[in-house]
């Protein structure tokens, strides 16, 4: 671990006690994430990718091992508002405008009014929703709502952005578009991003580091450092380099799957 390490997990395990006996959601997970990384977690359902993200966010509590975020415990980091979290659903409040929804965490964190206004404008521009501040969520499409929820996670000064299958419910075309915008946003804000997905092309296209996971027990089977440049037009997905990385991800997923049988 060096001073650019933002997230560090050491022998992290999480076991849920259920009526059918213990479920090993995570077992001996070791991972370091550096500042400015775009890390994707990919794997079949039940592999613990979301659980791991939730451990970083202090929404789940590991039963063994250690996790630090910005050098603090996950709980301290959450209380220090170290990260913004984007859930699968946009989760915008219907009784608040788009601007009001983005203002919500700012109100909770006690930013003053002028600062709130400035930040709302800034992040709306960042996700290309400049003219939608006064609109209500139901007036926006699903993709726009998810962009607003990303803006909400960016509005306060957290240098980590955690995203749990944020585009899972959207169609392919909207998804491509949002992926492009997310890369642009990442380049402009210099955030460290943790991104859960089950789409191989999405993981390869976005990430600097791809973490392949497998289920029962949830563990990491491969960590792939991407060799793709940071600047990535959509058609990079047709280059041999891209296809090679995608192959390696697929092999990792298959290997993890094979263990079961």
């Amino acid at each position: 671990m060096n001073d650019t390490t933002v997230i560090a997990a050491k022998n992290l395990s999480l076991t849920f006690q259920t009526n059918d006996g213990p479920v090993h959601a995570l077992k001996d997970v070791n991972l370091d994430v550096q500042k400015g990384d775009f890390v994707s977690f990919i794997g079949p359902s039940g592999c613990g990718k979301t659980t791991f993200l939730r451990c970083i966010a202090d929404l789940e509590h590991p039963t063994a091992g250690e996790i630090t975020v910005n050098g603090m415990s996950a709980e301290q980091a959450r209380k220090a508002r170290a990260y913004g979290y984007v859930f699968q659903a946009a989760g915008l409040y219907p009784w608040r405008t788009i601007g009001g929804n983005i203002r919500l965490p700012l109100e909770i964190m006690g930013y003053d009014k002028a600062d709130q206004d400035r930040r709302v404008k800034e992040v709306l521009e960042l996700v290309h929703l400049d003219n939608f501040e006064k609109k209500f969520p139901w007036q926006l499409s699903g993709g726009m709502q998810q962009r607003a929820s990303i803006a909400r996670a960016l509005a306060f000064d957290a240098d980590i952005l955690l995203m749990d299958e944020p585009f899972g419910a959207l169609d392919e075309i909207v998804r491509d578009h949002l992926n492009e915008q997310l890369l642009e946003l990442w380049a402009r804000t210099n955030k460290t991003i943790g991104f859960v997905t089950h789409s191989i092309p999405e993981a390869v296209y976005l990430s600097t580091k791809i973490v392949v996971m497998s289920p029962r027990p949830g563990r990491i089977t491969d960590v792939i450092e991407s060799t793709l440049p940071r600047e990535r037009p959509l058609d990079i997905r047709d280059t041999p380099e891209f296809i090679e990385i995608a192959h390696r991800v697929r092999d990792g997923l298959r290997a993890g799957h094979g263990d079961e049988h």
């Binding site: 929404l59 209380k79 859930f87 989760g91 919500l104 964190m109």
Partner: peptide, 12 residues
Amino acid sequence: HMQLDQMKTWSA
């Protein structure tokens, strides 16, 4: 759950 978790991530 999601809405309550979201509040938690903001330490509300």
